[in-house]
Simulated assay, not measured.
Amino acid sequence: MFYSLTVNEVKSLTPNSVAITFSIPSNLNEVFSFTSGQYITIKHIIKNEEIRRAYSISSSPKEKDITVGIKKVTGGIFSEYANSEIKIGDVLEVMPPEGRFVYTPANSKEDICAFAAGSGITPIMSIAKTVLSSHSENTFSLVYGNKSLEETMFYKELVQMLEDYRDRFFIQFVTSRAKEDDCLFGRIDLSNINYIIKNKFDVQGFKSVYLCGPEGMINVVTEVLKSKGVEESSIYHELFTSSEEESSESSVSEGNTSVSIVLDDEIHTFDMNQSATILDAVLEEGLDAPYSCQGGVCSTCIARITEGEAKMEKNQILTDGEINEGLVLTCQAHPTTSSIKVDYDDV
């Protein structure tokens, strides 16, 4: 369900990114409560077309309102609109927070690390604020890559956090297009990661490591961390871009499937071609199923297959255990049996 929220602040972060803050009315405080690392989905009509986009929350759960960072993407309909046209007083339709890339505070001291690139800093901002404010001895170490400091989202806020948490917050900036003082030059690649681990941060001492950014960065950092003895169960990641490559299992047939959809306590039946994704077929039927990115990056469109089978083109979100329980990303799932039952309510 979407709710109408009013924009109460628009702040320029870089020449190509803005922070949009939504005012949360007191009667919606519980609806829009969230855990650090989660995202919201925004729906808006632009040039007579409904656009939905998921954006991670950068503000802390302790803050009154919700802020998201939006980086302009060439050809990105909503990101260009947000960076050029959204103003204070505008009303947008917003879905309550969701997502699994989260940090939950503990009652004891924790040392947390994060690697982020570009707009991948957005959920990390919320996580860092919560880590540092939830326990007086917690530490947070961040590796953050951008083209230049000018293009670094939340740079001023991060510098202020360094001052506020002088002995507990540490940053290594990495810039790929400009050589900056106190920054490593290049990308968050194998050589820079190894240098940081050897000279800056002892990754084996961290309870958890959060990774957010492009898939290539996440894969490289993950492999290095594992080679240094970091347990995979301690590494959490969220993609902000996804590989265009499909697995060898992603081929789909041209057969037909009889579909039964459970959505908002109602059952809808129709036939679909197996070459289409379940979400596309559901939307074609005019049903208001939850979705956002349609690229397998967020988790908004998750549903449970209770009868029949489906195969996903890509999956970077669901665990093997969740897949075995029947969960699928419907934007990536194609039915492979003559009939299938999909339950959006049972997730």
Rank of each mutant, 00 (worst) to 15 (best):
M1P: 06
F2I: 03
S4M: 02
L5N: 13
L5S: 12
V10Y: 08
P15W: 04
N16T: 14
A19V: 05
T21I: 09
F22D: 05
F22V: 06
P25C: 06
S26A: 15
L28Q: 11
G37L: 13
T41P: 04
I42H: 06
K43W: 00
H44D: 10
I46H: 02
K47H: 13
K47C: 07
N48F: 09
N48S: 15
E49Q: 15
E49C: 11
A54H: 07
S58C: 15
S60F: 08
V68T: 02
G76W: 02
F78E: 11
A82L: 03
S84A: 14
E85N: 08
I86P: 05
I86G: 07
K87I: 05
K87C: 03
I88M: 14
I88T: 15
V91H: 08
E93C: 01
G99L: 02
R100Y: 11
Y103Q: 07
P105Y: 09
A106Y: 13
A106D: 13
N107L: 13
E110V: 13
I112S: 06
I112K: 05
A114K: 12
F115L: 14
I121C: 11
P123W: 01
P123G: 07
I124W: 09
A128M: 14
T130W: 06
S133C: 02
S136M: 05
N138I: 04
L142F: 06
L142Y: 03
G145D: 04
N146Q: 00
E150P: 00
M153G: 10
F154S: 10
F154E: 10
K156R: 11
E157S: 09
E157A: 06
Q160L: 10
M161F: 09
L162A: 08
E163N: 13
D167L: 05
V174W: 02
V174Y: 01
V174I: 15
R177A: 13
E180M: 07
D181H: 10
L184A: 08
R187Y: 14
R187A: 12
I188E: 04
I188H: 01
L190H: 14
I193M: 14
N194L: 01
I197G: 01
F201I: 10
Y210M: 03
C212A: 11
G216P: 03
M217E: 07
I218Q: 06
N219I: 03
N219C: 00
N219A: 09
V220R: 03
E223H: 12
E232R: 02
E232S: 12
E238G: 12
T241C: 06
S242P: 02
E246H: 10
S248N: 10
S250I: 05
V252H: 15
S258Q: 14
S258D: 12
V262Q: 12
L263Y: 00
D264V: 00
H268W: 01
T269D: 11
F270W: 11
D271E: 15
N273F: 02
A276V: 07
A276E: 15
V282R: 06
G286K: 09
D288R: 13
Y291N: 13
S292H: 09
S292R: 11
C293F: 08
G295L: 01
G295P: 00
S299T: 15
A303S: 08
A303F: 03
I305L: 02
E307S: 14
A310W: 06
A310G: 07
N315T: 07
G321S: 08
G321T: 08
N324P: 00
G326V: 02
G326S: 02
L329R: 13
H334S: 09
T336P: 04
S338F: 05
S339T: 14
I340V: 12
V342I: 15
D343S: 01
D345W: 02
